[in-house]
């Protein structure tokens, strides 16, 4: 068989298998569960939900009314604290 076909079919099989493997791995490690917990995984106690982390240099941040939010709603979105056993997705 011509080398070209090896390239085409070889890569299709290699990458197809890899994609399927990644998908199966994701299901087996529960990556598609507890989406809300996943969404807040980028926050931590130092940069929690509700805190802005960027601004123009040398300028004060937005006035409180711009950042205004319902604290009760925000408290429901607290990120899982990886330092408390049982709350990290990895330990489950």
């Amino acid at each position: 068989m011509h080398a070209v076909y090896w390239v085409i079919y070889g890569t299709v099989i290699l990458f197809g298998v890899t994609v399927v493997a990644a998908f199966v791995w994701a299901i087996r490690t529960h990556q598609f569960q507890k989406f809300q917990q996943g969404a807040v995984s980028i926050f931590d106690p130092d940069e929690p939900v509700g805190e802005m982390t960027d601004g123009f240099p040398g300028e004060s941040g937005p006035p409180p009314e711009v950042l205004d939010c319902d604290q009760d709603e925000l408290s429901k979105l607290d990120p899982p604290d990886p330092t408390v056993k049982g709350t990290s997705i990895r330990h489950e």
Partner: peptide
């Protein structure tokens, strides 16, 4: 976007 404004994405389910 979520990190700067301090809010999680609206629908994580949709993002996946």
């Amino acid at each position: 976007i979520p990190k700067v404004i301090g809010r999680p994405v609206y629908s994580y389910y949709l993002s996946i």
